[in-house]
């Protein structure tokens, strides 16, 4: 009897283990919902609005993937993750894709066994100081007290930067952006450091944004992008090409406004291939021919998502910079759809 129990246990364990490694696409289709890991709330990137509906730049990626796979951009279960829980959530299979301002680094890609499918926001770490301090360069920050969000790559960059420039500093580790803001405004730290996009978003929320300056130095490369588990390459391809479809859509002028019109057929073969009227790229991914059309229609192309959530006309007010299309001098460059 005892033996049976243990044998049974082992069998169940083996089955459970098998399931975790199986095709994510089939799981998502069977579930009818995409489990997407996002932040616990960072306005502009991923935050629930007043009605509890998730909205933001990273959320747009989740919705596009859900639209491509399931044909329904609302078929997403948003799983809020913290800096600490995000990787465990992804590797345990609790979420299918993680779209959470996550920096693409070597060890995360290799040692943690994830695949970054692309970069949806090129960021870099910066410093913000009160104007009254009279500091104009990060090189003058020797001896400063620095507020820093813990559990992010910013901690490592900061240590590297100060060591490289032979300067000392006192880190004040802080859990959330809101708390960091309070500490910084009360003068408990001289400097606040995080990704430049985050600094812009934080400063926008201040009563007197003009009293604070973001120093010119960008001390790190922070390519933020969605990631999936390593090993399920079919699923990785789907997320990767859904993202590139959004980028390519901007390049070829496919917007949520004109997509129906263009889907009737155009004289640009690449547009036709993306929208599924020529060839059948969808079948190669195991999806419907209109997968990319659904993804773009979900929230618009890459440029539309950017402008709507974090662009210059939003409170976040970020300019495209490195995130402009390659044709405009940026780094957004989709491989060809053929």
């Amino acid at each position: 009897m005892t033996k049976t129990v243990i044998l049974g246990t082992l069998t169940v364990a083996a089955l459970a283990a098998g399931a975790a490694g199986a095709a994510t696409l089939d799981d998502v289709k069977a579930r009818g919902k995409l489990n997407c890991g996002v932040t616990t709330g960072l306005v502009g990137f991923a935050a629930p609005d007043a009605n509890g509906k998730w909205d933001g730049f990273d959320v747009g990626i989740c919705r596009a993937v859900a639209a491509a796979v399931l044909g329904d951009p609302t078929a997403v279960e948003f799983v809020p993750t913290t800096g600490k829980t995000r990787f465990t959530a992804l590797s345990s299979g609790e979420i299918d894709v993680l779209a959470r301002n996550t920096t693409w680094t070597f060890s995360r890609d290799t040692d943690l066994k994830f695949d970054f499918v692309g970069v949806n926001y090129y960021d870099g770490q910066g410093f913000m100081v009160p104007k009254a301090l009279g500091v104009s360069s990060a090189k003058e920050l020797d001896g400063a007290t620095v507020c820093i969000q813990t559990g992010t790559t910013t901690e490592l960059n900061l240590a590297d930067y100060f060591r490289k420039n032979n300067m000392s500093y006192q880190p004040v580790p802080i859990e959330t952006n809101a708390e960091a803001q309070q500490q910084y405004l009360n003068g408990a730290c001289d400097v606040y450091t995080t990704d430049a996009s985050g600094l812009a978003a934080t400063r926008a929320a201040f009563e007197a944004p003009g009293d604070h300056v973001v120093l010119p130095e960008i001390i790190s490369k922070e390519p933020l992008g969605p990631l999936v588990r390593h090993g399920d390459n079919d699923w990785g391809d789907i997320v990767r090409w859904t993202f590139y479809a959004l980028v390519a859509a901007e390049e070829y002028g496919i917007t949520s406004a004109n997509i129906e019109e263009l889907a009737a057929g155009t004289d640009n073969p690449e547009v036709n291939r993306i929208l599924g009227t020529e060839d059948n790229l969808g079948a190669m991914l195991g999806l419907e021919p209109t997968w990319a059309k659904a993804a773009i229609a979900a929230g618009g192309n890459y440029g539309e998502l950017f402008e709507k959530n974090i662009g210059e006309n939003t409170p976040i007010g970020l300019s495209r910079g490195l995130n402009a299309q390659w044709t405009d001098g940026g780094l957004m460059y989709s491989p060809p759809f053929r």
């Binding site: 246990t9 459970a16 390593h230």
Partner: peptide, 13 residues
């Protein structure tokens, strides 16, 4: 325990 190890192995960890 065995579930943990099996899952880790399946994920290559």
């Amino acid at each position: 325990g065995s579930n943990l190890f099996a899952n880790l192995r399946a994920a290559g960890l």
